[in-house]
């Protein structure tokens, strides 16, 4: 029986869903494994048991006021101590801004391989991951030693929550010291509460929106659907919205259940970032737009007519 360490991630007082997906992934690496959850932060012990309900066998918590905001310095001190104490055969965490940032540092310290941004696991040791921003995929193995992966949110389904599961939650004391990096301020994104990489629905706009003011009609549509708002490079370059929203080969790569492309042409760079979405809807006035080539459903017409109607219709559908 192997031991798999799953590093959970907390945001706004609760676990990000990818933490539960990581537990499912760890069980795929070894069905009979002991799955040990780890969660660290300023105040995390009260929610730690959630990891057990999603399949972890026990959970280690480390709390410190020095862990309030993520820094690679502080987090790596704590996580290295946990890893050395537990000596797991595998480590799984989300490919989020924290996972992306810290996993390579841990892999460097451990002298190990690391497979980033895994979207599926075949058998127990072959990892599928996108390359060229999703234009292609590769299948990778870690030949020996620690099986260390980060998984892309929204791809490997979490196990069903089992309220009846019990497991130990154990607090570990780790001294965090010699920090040089100072977090001066965190400015929360105000445009939408839903994170692009974890959103199950994305409403995305292109140059067809024509202005920053018009871009707001997408916010209304997104709000009704509980969706995140994204954009094409064209829309970002034209300053209709922030670069943080950009989806594509430069920008974010997303795989939501539903992607609604509004007034964007479907340039190859953009398509690379979203073509693996499960269902794609295109709204464009140009019937020849490339985006219709990959869309499951398309409406040809003026987005300024269609989007408000669609928002209303969704409002009815979501309520009913």
């Amino acid at each position: 029986m192997s031991k798999q360490l799953v590093i959970g991630e907390v945001s706004d007082g609760g676990f990000r869903n990818v933490s539960f997906e990581a537990i499912a992934a760890a069980k795929q690496l070894d069905e009979s494994a002991e799955v040990v959850g780890v969660v660290i932060g300023e105040s995390v012990a009260s929610i730690a048991e959630e990891m057990v309900k999603y399949g972890a066998d026990r959970v280690i918590t480390v709390e410190s006021d020095k862990l309030k905001e993520y820094t690679p310095e502080a987090y790596s001190q704590v996580l290295m101590e946990v890893i050395e104490k537990e000596s797991p055969e595998g480590i799984v965490m989300g490919h989020t801004y924290i996972g992306r940032d810290i996993a390579p540092k841990l892999a460097s310290k451990l002298g190990s391989g690391l497979v980033s941004d895994v979207t599926a696991i075949e058998g127990s040791s072959q990892f599928i991951r996108p390359i060229y921003s999703g234009k292609a995929f590769e299948k990778v193995e870690i030949e020996e030693g620690l099986q260390f992966i980060t998984i892309r949110p929204n791809n490997i389904p979490a196990l069903e929550k089992d309220e009846g599961r019990n497991g130990n939650v154990e607090a570990l004391d780790v001294e965090v010291k010699d920090l040089q990096m100072i977090i001066k301020d965190v400015v929360k994104n105000t445009t939408s509460g839903v994170d692009l990489s974890e959103a199950s629905i994305i409403v995305s706009g292109g140059r067809g929106l024509k202005s920053m003011e018009n871009f707001k009609i997408l916010d209304e549509l997104a709000e009704v659907l509980g969706a995140a708002v994204g954009a094409s490079r064209g829309a970002c370059d034209a300053e209709y919205c922030d670069y943080a929203l950009q989806i594509g080969q430069t920008g974010k790569v997303v795989t939501p259940d539903l992607y609604i492309a509004v007034g964007l042409s479907g340039a190859i760079q953009h398509v690379a970032g979203m073509s693996n979405s499960k269902v794609i809807v295109a709204i464009n006035k140009d019937p020849e737009a490339e985006i219709f080539q990959i869309a499951d459903y398309g409406i040809v017409g003026d987005l300024f007519d269609i989007v408000p109607k669609l928002t209303e219709e969704f409002r009815k559908a979501v309520v009913s």
């Binding site: 190990s112 391989g113 690391l114 497979v115 072959q126 390359i131 999703g134 234009k135 292609a136 995929f137 590769e138 299948k139 990778v140 193995e141 870690i142 030949e143 020996e144 030693g145 073509s275 693996n276 794609i280 019937p287 219709f292 080539q293 990959i294 869309a295 499951d296 459903y297 398309g298 409406i299 040809v300 017409g301 007519d305 269609i306 109607k309």
Partner: peptide, 24 residues
Amino acid sequence: PKTKTVDRYLPPEKQAGRKLEGEL
């Protein structure tokens, strides 16, 4: 290297779906 790429492949080609018709 610690990792080995054993295969690379293209995703299944997405079929164009349908454009809806009728009144908006």
